[in-house]
Design a binder for these strands. Structure first.
Lengths: 241, 241
DNA sequence: AACCCATTAGATACGACTAATTCAAGCCCC
DNA sequence: GGGGCTTGAATTAGTCGTATCTAATGGGTT
């Protein structure tokens, strides 16, 4: 979507990356550069560049005389947007979605509190606009329009927090929200209570009421977590939803 | 420390990466592969692999007929451990430390709450041991020993949370804590109140009291934020401490 | 104003050489 | 005779240089 195979090495990565993150090669598996180059019908130079990228993501480790070794999942750079996309596209999508939602529940309330302190008048206006847009699309099967405003809403707050680490989680939030809409997690119309909460959050930020913005956002993310629990009640270590 | 120049391209990255993250090349700057290869006295192949890694970190973007373009800081993969290290080693270390501390203040309380729910007896024991170790090193200029147990304490909790995204922040916490100890942010002995809080967190986790573990951890991270404010009182957008 | 072409710099490919690491055979010492 | 160390051969990634391809840019032409 954002990186549609820029160049040959990119196309190789689009196959190799998902394969590794999906666990098709168990930790410790050894791949040979030459072999891979033949398999993907590219030159060794291209394959080496692809391996370098995988290495920078800590998905693999290349050693002389041995080959390219697949690292255990615990060492992967799980915050790399590319890795996140690959994992969301793979088999352990449910677990990944849960991890990200828990991360959201930690970050977004704090971000909302900071936004209430730091947001400019313009940012407040944009956030409010999104909330209004959500209300407008909350009834009558307008899920796509609702999603659009929902994503923008959360992204604006993360940006308005003034913390670059928070701001960079905008894509993560988008993935989670889009996943919820497009994988039948959401009913025909969004929960009216959630919509109200978003409006109230916008209000709180506009009024620079940080504790209220934080608490209301906490309620939103709590709701998101509960939605997941309904789908995969086993809780934390659910393998497949 | 963890990656001491693996290969030629690694050594190139150790110079180019910090230079870019330090802002030596303003956003939009164009680097030429050939030129860089000459500058670093390596072949183009090696330079291309280095560029690929920088590209995967979203530090640069390479376009035909143009060159290698430095991206604005807002697009960087700021969660990449390598990028974090480069930025911590550079001029905007203070701002980076603040960003990371704010992130801690969001994540660690939630992680502690989850740890209180999920931690095994063995994990509880290890956490308690660390807290005891912190107490033992809290007096008499034993800062290094204190730091060691402090890092282990927070890392164990992040791991015990059962959330992989949280677990991967262990290195971040280590960097922040080490930075505090080694850059004269801490006085001769750590704050006794903070030590007590750590002991109480261990207690709460052992007793599976999630709300208490969360609240106590919040007090710890609040303290960390206040420490930063003492150093750089200008608050959020302090450029230099 | 629209189109075409030359220029340019990255993208790909290939082949040769280098260096490091592993494994095993062989040696020495005990 | 057995265990541990040394040494060397095989293997595979690392590096380099060159040649060719591709695509974006800018200028010139119609």
């Amino acid at each position: 979507m954002s990186t549609p195979g820029r160049g040959l090495h990119g196309r190789v990565l689009e196959t190799l990356g998902p394969a590794i993150t999906a666990g098709e090669y168990p930790p410790g598996s050894v791949l040979r550069t030459d072999e891979l180059a033949q398999t993907f019908e590219v030159s060794r130079s291209v394959m080496r560049e692809a391996v370098r990228v995988l290495e920078s993501m800590h998905l693999v480790e290349s050693r002389r005389r041995v080959g390219v070794i697949v690292r255990p999942a615990a060492e992967w750079n799980v915050y790399d947007p590319q890795v996140i996309r690959w994992r969301l596209a793979g088999a352990d999508r449910p677990r990944q979605l849960r991890s990200l939602t828990v991360l959201r529940s930690a970050v977004e309330p704090i971000a909302a509190g900071l936004a209430a302190r730091h947001a400019t008048a313009e940012q407040c206006a944009e956030i409010t606009e999104c909330a209004i847009g959500m209300v407008a699309h909350s009834r009558g099967h307008k899920l796509e329009g609702y999603l659009h405003h929902d994503v923008a809403f959360h992204r604006l707050i993360l940006n308005a927090s003034g913390n670059e680490m928070f701001a960079r989680l905008g894509d993560v939030v988008e993935e989670v929200l889009a996943g919820r809409t497009h994988h039948a997690v959401m009913f025909d119309d969004p929960d009216p209570a959630a919509v109200t909460l978003h409006v109230q959050v916008a209000e709180a930020i506009r009024e620079h009421d940080a504790p209220r913005a934080e608490e209301l956002t906490r309620e939103i993310t709590e709701g998101a977590l509960q939605e997941l629990d309904i789908l995969a009640p086993n809780g934390h270590f659910t393998a497949s939803g």
